[in-house]
Design a protein around this nucleic acid. Structure first.
Length: 273
DNA sequence: GTAAACCTGGCA
DNA sequence: TGCCAGGTTTAC
């Protein structure tokens, strides 16, 4: 579920509630996530205080006072919710890990599909982040020249590239579709057949779409919630994602759907070329 | 490259 | 009942 804007929204909602707090106890109710929790997961968190809440790609990183980081990925259906002290919340079916903090509040990792993962490790040397591409909001590393530079190396479709975490960090299916719409480029267009100017347009579109999605606190198309249980608002602003057959907001042509790189893709046949 | 795998829930 | 889902990895 969560792509870059959703993870960033979780991060910003939790930051004031967890930074400076110390982990008291960790309850693991189900440790068989996408990768099973390490046997020392609880002991590597207990007694540590949280120094900083960061994000890299779709990972939330809670930096600890011993140099390690609590790294979380939400997969498709993960939620990471903070519950204030005294607000009793009976554990729900898919509450897999409960982390109690020094102020009596707690963090709950809930994930029906269990595609998410959590580890405590040195983020700087973590294999999870190895090979992840540039952050799209950093225009020094992600820009038209960077995309244009890929043209000599691959013939892949634009949509396939945008969703590849080694090419650009944090873009998933919703925002790849929305970015291509804003850029006026079809999902199946080959990057080799994309001009330098179009690469520049696409880079700007990705940043624009992600920035707008962060402003609207992410997309709650079915069930995304931020760290304190609020829904996002970008689902009301999406132009093409999951709108097959509906009129294009620009030209009213019916939105089409095709599969690119195993994922449903949506585009306007008139606005996108 | 492409398909299938992981897992649960919602919807037609 | 079958298909689909915001993701990633692994195997032909």
């Amino acid at each position: 579920m969560p792509e870059l804007p959703e993870v960033e929204t979780i991060r910003s909602s939790l930051e004031p509630l967890v930074v400076g707090r110390t982990v008291t106890t960790v309850e693991v109710r189900r440790g068989d996530l996408r990768r099973p929790l390490a046997s020392d997961f609880a002991s590597s968190l207990e007694g540590r205080s949280i120094r900083r809440a960061r994000r890299r790609a779709k990972y939330l990183l809670l930096d600890l006072d011993d140099g390690m980081s609590w790294m979380l990925h939400m997969g498709m259906s993960g939620r990471f919710l903070h519950t204030p002290a005294g607000a009793g919340r009976a554990p729900e079916k898919h509450d897999h890990v409960l982390v109690h903090l020094s102020d009596g509040s707690r963090l709950v990792f809930n994930d029906p599909r269990r595609f998410g993962l959590m580890t405590v490790e040195d983020a700087a040397s973590s294999s999870l982040l190895e090979g992840i591409g540039p952050e799209p909001l950093d225009e020094r590393s992600f820009n038209g020249a960077y995309l244009a530079g890929l043209r000599a190396r691959t013939t892949r479709a634009l949509k396939d590239l945008l969703m590849d975490q080694r090419v650009v960090a944090g873009v998933g299916n919703i925002y790849a579709n929305e970015s291509l719409f804003l850029a006026g480029l079809r999902p199946r267009r080959r990057i080799a057949r994309t001009s330098a100017a179009q690469c520049q347009t696409l880079a700007v579109a990705v940043r624009t779409v992600l920035g707008e999605a962060i402003e609207h606190r992410g997309s709650s198309i079915s069930d995304f919630l931020d760290g304190v249980g609020r829904r996002g608002g970008y689902q009301w602003r999406r132009r093409v994602y999951d709108r097959k057959g509906e009129p294009c907001p620009v030209c009213a042509a019916a939105i089409k759907s095709v599969v690119v790189a195993q994922r449903a893709s949506y585009y306007c046949p008139r606005c996108q070329r």
